[in-house]
Computed example of a mutant assay.
Amino acid sequence: MKEIKLFTLIPLQLLLMYLSGNIVLCYTDNIAVLQFSEFISTLIPFLLAIYWFKDVLISDWKKITISWWKIVICTLIGVAILEIVSNLIYLKLPVFPDPASTENIIFSNLPSMQKIFYFLFSSSALLTAVTEELNFRYLFLGRYTKFNKVLGLILSSILFGLAHYFIQFQLLSCLPYMAMGLVLGLIYLFTKNIWSVIFIHITTNLFFAVLILLFNW
């Protein structure tokens, strides 16, 4: 019963994001309000993930034996690999609208107070990173594919990519995320520690979903 409950986190997050976006849009198109609704829709699954997976988070944290400077270096290397792999895939795909550039244009035109709220609530990308790693890497890949790691790696990568369908509503746009899921899965299988991929995923989202706003302030 507990395992079934754990598998509901990602569908719950996607459902909340869809519902909150559509409901809020019926009443306002205020960027800060929309960002706040997205933050709430990711906060609930994040808190559930932290509570339900607290044992593995604590256990794997205690298993970290390398120094912090090595963790930082390994994390940055992991981020670089993710970006190289995803960009190589993007180069082979048809040209899609760049949501990041559109977001930056909108952000640069916002009043200062709305910029502050937008920046704060953009941290939902960091919450999502933790929820996704606990689900796709630890739960799906680590626990339920013990007898076939290759199949588990492929399936978890595909599901990870499909979970990002709502970013551009294009199946082809999911391919770079599938490739990133494959890299994160390989790293998790190698390190056997959920924190290794959480660090990389959070840092990636921090660079490309949060800090990028500072350059367009």
Rank of each mutant, 00 (worst) to 15 (best):
L162Q: 06
K54G: 04
L186E: 04
K92P: 00
L153T: 00
L76T: 02
E133K: 06
F53K: 00
T204P: 00
L6A: 09
M17G: 08
I89L: 11
G152S: 04
V95G: 05
K192T: 06
H164Q: 07
E3S: 13
T191I: 08
I89R: 09
M113T: 14
R137I: 04
S59M: 08
L153V: 01
P97D: 13
I154W: 03
N30V: 08
F160E: 02
F166V: 13
V24T: 15
S124K: 11
T28W: 11
I84G: 06
P94L: 04
V95M: 13
F160D: 04
L120Y: 11
W52Y: 12
M1E: 07
S173W: 12
L159N: 02
F136S: 02
I44T: 10
N205H: 06
F199I: 00
I10S: 08
C26V: 08
Q114N: 15
Q170N: 15
L110I: 05
V72Y: 03
Y188I: 00
A100V: 14
L15Y: 12
T203G: 03
S124T: 09
I158M: 12
L171M: 11
T102Y: 13
Y118F: 15
K62C: 07
Q170P: 01
S37V: 10
G142M: 11
L184V: 03
F160M: 10
L91R: 09
L12E: 02
E3R: 10
S122Y: 04
F96Y: 12
A80I: 06
S196C: 11
E132D: 12
I200A: 04
F147K: 14
L34H: 12
V24L: 14
L43E: 07
L25F: 15
L153N: 01
K70M: 08
T128F: 06
S41V: 06
I4F: 15
C74S: 14
L43Q: 06
T191C: 10
L15M: 14
F53S: 04
K70N: 12
Y90N: 13
I106G: 07
T203Q: 02
A49G: 03
P176T: 01
G181D: 00
W52C: 06
L186R: 00
S101K: 14
Y177K: 00
I158N: 10
A129Y: 11
N216D: 12
L16N: 09
A163V: 09
W68N: 10
